[in-house]
Write a protein that binds this DNA or RNA. Structure first.
Lengths: 237, 237
DNA sequence: TCAAAAGTGTTCCTTCTACACCCATGT
DNA sequence: ACATGGGTGTAGAAGGAACACTTTTGA
């Protein structure tokens, strides 16, 4: 079969992903480095028989060399690339900091969020929105857990929140809320770390993951919560 | 330019829109009626030089015969149509109930949300998610205003909320919150309606519209709010 | 004078915020 | 004994929920 391309072709579908990682330097993003100080986000096209999510997952895995912990679709941008229409479906990915820093992936740099320089307008919008979404979801989901190792201390958890939000949070209030939320299991073990009191270790309590909350195709399970805003208990009779 | 098409072609971009309207029968949705009791959502393809939003706007306008009040991208679904990959970018649209019911558009039916029957899986997901999003946004944006005429009473506003949420809300609390929110201007005029006390008329106070809150490309303006979850005042020093 | 919708306050309770000191350990 | 990070409680403020009667009008 042959298609004659006229001046304008139908829009091409492109996938763009923003993998975040939490390391010593705080929150950083995987980019392809280019000209000095110019980077671009990970992108690719879905194969003809590939769902969007699996294409995004594959792109992240291929480029950074290991699996993401969490993947969420963000937004779809329509724009022109070289005079052709295209459509960019953007994704947020979270990966755990790997100790195997030996096998740093070629063509990939992890850059602190505030140092990322993106020449492309769409890339900048994608990154900006990814950060907004990540920060917002910290407040009402357990999304932060995908940035941490399976066992962690409350201080580590707090540092993760602070790194993402970009500002300090109150220790006592933070701990109270986290424990009250019920998503943490305290382990019997403690971690002896330096010349100070050892810290209790925690893990995430539930396998059911609230992070995707309010995003299809899983949104329905949580719909009640969403519609309970602006209602009172007696109203739901 | 010539492209040789192999067995599978690249994904096609499709746009799907869910226009909501608030009428006597409560919240209803514009669909194309088909086989008895089978409907489908409004859909179309973006022109080669058309942005996604304008394509969605055009599709809504063409089909229902008047402009939408509010348009918001929801989610992008990847799926197969007739064995070919395609990508559906879904949109939520809100329209004001028009008095010009004379010019009901051909090929369109407005069906109460709970009576919509969609044979397509993707269509069902789109509608479900549109409702979830609309309900959620009632709680923290002024999105409801796009379903109402420019001047309205507090009772009408409350009925709109109830129709969307699907349950009653407390009158006194509702009024207090609405007035406290500051998005309402009370007009000097009142509406005499039946054999009872006349109701004060209101309109929306601000031209700046919080409904798109947390959705690109406007999300940035509201980013501070988003990241203020889980923080205390003193933390932001 | 009655019916029908408009309008209006208070109490209780839960949640949020601010804030400072003692504890366990290693050197 | 001291330095380091781990761990804890409380009081005040603000916000959310429940709840019932009076007012104004037209018929």
């Amino acid at each position: 079969m042959v298609i004659v391309k006229t001046t304008a072709s139908p829009p091409l579908v492109r996938i763009s992903a923003v993998p975040f990682r939490l390391g010593r330097a705080g929150l950083s993003v995987a980019v392809h480095p280019g000209q000095p100080d110019e980077q671009r986000l990970l992108a690719g096209a879905p194969g003809p028989d590939e769902w969007l999510d699996s294409a995004a997952r594959r792109i992240v895995r291929e480029r950074i060399g290991w699996d993401e912990q969490y993947l969420e679709q963000l937004y779809t941008f329509g724009h022109a690339t070289d005079g052709n229409a295209s459509v960019t479906v953007s994704y947020l990915a979270l990966v755990r900091d790997q100790d195997r820093h030996d096998q740093e992936s070629p063509g990939i740099a992890w850059v602190a969020v505030h140092d990322v320089t993106l020449p492309s307008d769409v890339d900048r919008q994608v990154l900006e929105y990814a950060l907004i979404r990540l920060r917002a979801k910290l407040g009402y989901t357990n999304i932060a857990f995908h940035l941490l190792p399976p066992r962690f201390t409350l201080s580590e958890l707090q540092l993760a929140y602070q790194a993402v939000l970009g500002h300090p949070v109150d220790k006592r209030n933070f701990r109270r809320r986290m424990i009250a939320s019920g998503i943490l299991d305290q382990l019997d073990e403690k971690r002896r770390d330096g010349s100070h009191r050892p810290a209790a270790l925690y893990r995430f309590a539930s396998r059911d993951d609230h992070a995707a909350y309010l995003t299809p195709p899983w949104a329905a399970e949580h719909a009640e919560n969403a519609s309970e805003l602006l209602t009172s208990r007696s109203d739901r009779a």
